[in-house]
Design a protein around this nucleic acid. Sequence first.
RNA 1: GGGCGCGUGGCUCAGUGGAUAGAGCAUCAGGUUCCGGUCCUGAGGGUCGGGGGUUCGAAUCCCUCCGCGCUCGCCA
Length: 586
Amino acid sequence: MNATLEKLKHKFEQALVAAFGADYAGVDPILVPASNPKFGDYQSNIALSINKQLGQSPRTTAEQLVKHLNVSDLCEPPAVAGPGFINLILKTSYLEAQIKAAQADPRIGVATAKNPKRTIVDYPSPNIAKEMHVGHLRPAVIGDSIARILEFLGHEVLRISHVGDWGTPFGMLIVHLQQAYPEALRTTETLDLGDLSTFYRQAKKRFDEDENFREAARLAVVKLQAGDEETLLAWKIVCALSSRAYQVIYDLLGIAPFIERGESFYNLLLPGVVQALEAAGLLVEDQGAKCVFLEGFTNKEGNPLPLIIQKSDGGYNYATTDLAAIRYRLQVDKAQRVIYPVGAEQTNHFTQIFQVGRRAGWITDDVEFIHAPFGLVLGEDSKKLKTRTGETVRLRDLLDEAIARARDDLEARLQEEGRQETEEFKAAVAQAVGISAVKYTDLSQNRTSNYTFSFDKMLNLQGNTAPYLMYAYVRIQGISRKGQINFAQLGADAKILLTEETELALAKHLLQLSEVLGYVEADLLPNRLCQYLFELSQKFNQFYDQCPVLSAAEPIRTSRLVLCDLTAKTLKLGLSLLGISVIERM
RNA sequence: GGGCGCGUGGCUCAGUGGAUAGAGCAUCAGGUUCCGGUCCUGAGGGUCGGGGGUUCGAAUCCCUCCGCGCUCGCCA
């Protein structure tokens, strides 16, 4: 099914040619949602932009265009307003038909992408044996949502986590494991190291204090890279334990499954990167290191800045690994679009490796490598979020606190309303609300800006929060329970009647999902979807306030039930694309 | 010092060329509590950091200044 906007755009393109000649074929009619509802539903600003070349007033241009515009199946007669805007109001009969079609459509009227692309979304890449912290929240939540949206639109999506599972810190972890938990290397039983971060701290402490340990650690790195079996086994154990610990957090957050393809995966491909850059004539040896000198980057002395591909000691940097990943994703994965939702502080890094990838001829014009940067999570003091004692906030602690606070709110409400609920219900609602609140807050901010973290605000039941949206859904389920309505059996022959203002406003909004997802597909800004869902909830609440459903007479009753059902479906789908699940009661 | 980003009502934020700049929170005033009021209606409140420019039209593009953040060769 075509989005309304697309149909209108097509009609405008035809009218432009009909009115002003073939020169205007393919000119964008600048068709956008009306800036104010009083101007209608859509407006075209084309007359204001082409009047100069036509040598006449924009109003005249608009009027000529309208004469050739045939939109009578969709809209009321178009009106020229102000300096030359063309305003369009959708016909009620058209809206009614569209609502009915969406109701019967499993995709509720959302079209799939015309050009599906093989897409890779880069997932958070925590360092093995370190605990996940707030810094991993945004890449997880935003990456998951982007992947879900693109997948729903028909793109083939690969989710890949580039975990830090290689490099110098591993020496100390391996040696510490070998010495403190020798039994781990002899048994296939699951080993309980307790708190992994404690394990890391112990290792780090020994590394800092004990010269012998440091030497052993260095040796372990050499052995690891040489493929020594015993060392490799210890390394694998550390990685496995770590992944298992991460999985608990990912599960709690509801992050969709992904492929773990850590830095170690590219180890054998690194020499190939050096060779390829050498062959491309980009590699320069400077102060013993093999570098590519960058265009547009200078050091403090004003000289070109090098990107170090191979260190003077023969080792590799993360830029090299990332370049290897770029090649692999192109050559083996055959990716057409690669998206890196990574913090804005790494903008330079990505600009640099993409530049090298392009200059080496790997990244061609038909593929897209996109760094989708995001801002920081700030504390109330407007500084990077820390605990009261100034430490990094563990992601687990943050989520647990959100759940605990959601639980307190729920208990208070139950008491106030004199409700009795099972422990199971309370635990499930607290978790759903707490986690959703954290995720929704993160997603509802413009990805590129910093935002201030506040439990009170995100758990607020009013305003642009997850609980407000979830409540709108719960209200609809309440109607279904109370009226013993099975929404699935409303029937394809149900007549849709949009008479009240709030019904029309709700219906129009329901039909805009496709457009909104199109924006997110292009801009990778999930906050647009959040905004849409929030406005949908508001419009539903206004409708709910004004229009009785169950007590209405037929055929209005069934028509309103369809509106309720479609709203619920839209909320459920929209939230699921944000990685948020709805609940039936709360 | 160079590069990148940000600066919008008391607070948190939308809005990247189009009509009087929007929302939520908070404040104040009202409604309703009948399908779950965790709701709805209304009001006040902004020289869109300052200045200059491009344009028929600028929060949005360009220049410049101020403030804040990130970043600048062998960590990731």
